[in-house]
Structures are given as C-alpha cells and as structure tokens.
Simulated scan of single mutants.
Amino acid sequence: MDTSFVKSPEVQKLLDRAAGIEESGGNPRLKAIMRDLIESAMTVIVKHDVSESEFWLAVKYLAEGSGELGLIVPGIGLEHFIDLFLDAKDAQAGRVGGTPRTIEGPLYVAGAPLVEGDAALTVDPDEGAHTLYMSGAVTGPDGEPVENAIVHVWHANSQGWYSHFDPTGEQTPFNNRRRIKLGKDGRYAFHSKQPSGYSVPPGGATDQLMQALGRHGNRPAHVHFFIEAPGYRTLTTQINFGDDPFAADDFAFGTREGLLPVPNRQGDAAYIAFDFQLQRASDAEDEGFSARARAAAEPVDAA
C-alpha cells in the first residue's frame, strides 16, 4: 500500500485526536512533536508493510529492553545525530571552533570527589593494568587560560567496567571518577589505571539489535569529560585511544576527528597530552548541563 494512506482524512483525524490537537489543555509544542512522531511511525508501518506480529514484537523488545535505552540510543546513531544537529546549528549561527563535542553515554555519576592538582582517579587494585597519565590545558577561544574550570573525568577499569555500574560489585564508589578544580593557569593532570574498550552486555537488548543489524557492539578504550567554567559553554566530550582496533568502528559513533590521540606508550605506562578549547557562553543555559537523567551517589572524601 502507498504511504499516501497516512494522509487519508480518517488517519489525519486520528492523528489530531491522538495528539490532542483539538483539546484546549496541554502543551502545544508537545502536541505538534507528538503528532509528527506518531505520523512518522505510521508511515514506516505502511511503507514496510509491518505485520501485526512484527509491530507487537517491536513493542515487546522496547518494553523488555528499556533498561538499556542508554546504550540503544547511541548504538542506533541518535545520540551522535544530536551532536551533528547541534554542530550544524552552531555553524549556522557563526559559532565555530573549540574542542568537538561528542556523546556523553549513560555512565556518568554525579557527586565525584572534587580535587586539585595531579588527580589520582584509580583507588581500587587493577592488577596488570598499565598506568595512564593525561595532562593538558583548558583554554578559551582566544587561547586564554580558563580560570576556575572544573574538569569532570570518568572511565572504565581495565576490564571494561565502570564503578557504580559494575556487576561484579568489586569497585568502590567513584573509582576512576573525579572532578578536578583548575587554577589560574587552566592546566589539568591526572593518572589512573588505563581503561580498556568493552562490548555491550552479551545477550542484552542492545546486543540483540546489533546482531540483527549485522553489527558489533564494541567501543574503543576512551575517557569521558565534562568541562565547565564561568562564562564558558559547558563541553561534553571524550577522547578515544587512536591505536585501539575499534577507534575507527565505534558502535556508539563516539569517535570524531580531533578526539583520537594516540597514547605514547613507554613500558607499563601510557601518556596522553591533550588540550581542550571552550567556547564562550552566550547565556546562562550554555554554562549548564542538559536535562538528561544521570545517576548520582553519595559524595565521598577523595583518597
């Protein structure tokens, strides 16, 4: 059947009613978005002649896999698309330059210890893991040091597990997580046990979808960052290890040009020098974080 069926008077009337278009209450913006979203879903159903069984299997998948939506969204490219969309809006507004943004991922935990100086991220034993040393500067668009910046940094351990989300229960709160308060020179430094790449949970909803699409669910070794400072736009980004075999084939589309440093490996240590450049904030909203739901834990004293 042709997709023009969706434009039939009966279906269009159904869309208006479903989205509350004719009702006086509610949020007009949400109504418009919801109507377009439902119409798009209807168009896909007609275009691909989705059967009743296929439709309800999809509903079952979404219901059972809801706990992995934080992985499914980047896995199908939607989180990366948001970055591309924001980049395009910036370019249209003449806002260019700065370190590229990239996906946040679902594994940030608020409340990490706030420290100064050369921060030690790893507090748990991680036998056999090499040491990672990372340092650099945070500057503004004119190259000026950014004073009083806070660098939020988090990454997995050498087994690919993040504290707070580790199913083994072996990591202490905020292992490999810190907030680093910078001084007037805008420089940061930390050391930790080097993270490894990892795959999505085997047999889980994301893995099932990736296999059905003929794709893998692997990420390269990487380190996440938020960088916030008064007067500057908060940056959400991550660096991916440029020598990781999945650096060019990240299932979550998190790798971007300019975010792929190759560690300088010397014996049992790896060194990364990486500078961040922030954009100036145009309003208070620029200095904040998105409204994304994030995990939180009780703050603890830094080790």
Rank of each mutant, 00 (worst) to 15 (best):
T99V: 12
G97A: 01
V46E: 11
L107K: 07
V96G: 03
V44P: 04
H80N: 11
T139N: 13
A120D: 06
K89L: 13
M34H: 09
S53K: 11
F55G: 02
S66P: 03
G65F: 01
P74W: 14
A137K: 11
V123Q: 02
R17M: 00
Q92T: 04
S40M: 01
K13M: 11
A18R: 08
D83N: 13
I82A: 07
L15G: 04
V59G: 06
T102K: 02
W56I: 03
V115R: 02
E144A: 13
E104W: 02
D36C: 07
G70Q: 03
G111C: 05
L84E: 15
G94E: 09
D126L: 01
V123H: 10
K31T: 11
T122I: 00
V115E: 07
D49A: 05
Y133I: 12
I38H: 03
L71R: 02
A41P: 02
R35Q: 15
E52M: 10
P113V: 03
R17N: 15
A129D: 07
L30W: 14
D83R: 05
H80E: 09
E79Y: 04
D49Q: 10
L107Y: 09
G128R: 06
G75H: 11
I45K: 01
V96L: 15
P141T: 08
R101W: 12
E10T: 06
L84D: 14
A120H: 10
G143T: 14
G94V: 07
A112P: 01
M34C: 09
F81Q: 08
I103D: 04
I82H: 05
I82L: 15
G97Q: 04
I33Q: 13
D49T: 10
A129L: 08
T122R: 00
D83C: 13
E79I: 03
G25R: 08
D118E: 15
V50E: 00
V109K: 03
K47A: 12
F55W: 07
D49M: 10
W56C: 00
H48L: 03
N27D: 15
F81M: 05
P113M: 04
P106M: 05
H80I: 06
L107R: 13
G105T: 02
Y133S: 08
L57M: 12
P100W: 13
K60G: 03
D124E: 06
L132S: 06
E52G: 03
L14E: 04
E10Q: 15
A120K: 13
R17E: 15
M34Q: 12
I82C: 07
F85R: 15
L37V: 07
I33W: 15
D83K: 07
E79H: 09
E22I: 07
F85V: 09
V115T: 01
G111P: 01
D126M: 00
A93P: 02
V59N: 10
N27F: 13
S53L: 07
V46I: 11
D124W: 00
H80Q: 15
S53N: 13
G77F: 14
S40R: 10
E39G: 00
S53V: 10
G26C: 05
A32T: 10
G94K: 13
A110R: 06
K31I: 05
R95E: 12
M134L: 15
V59K: 12
I82N: 11
L69Y: 07
I103M: 11
G20R: 09
E52D: 09
G77Q: 10
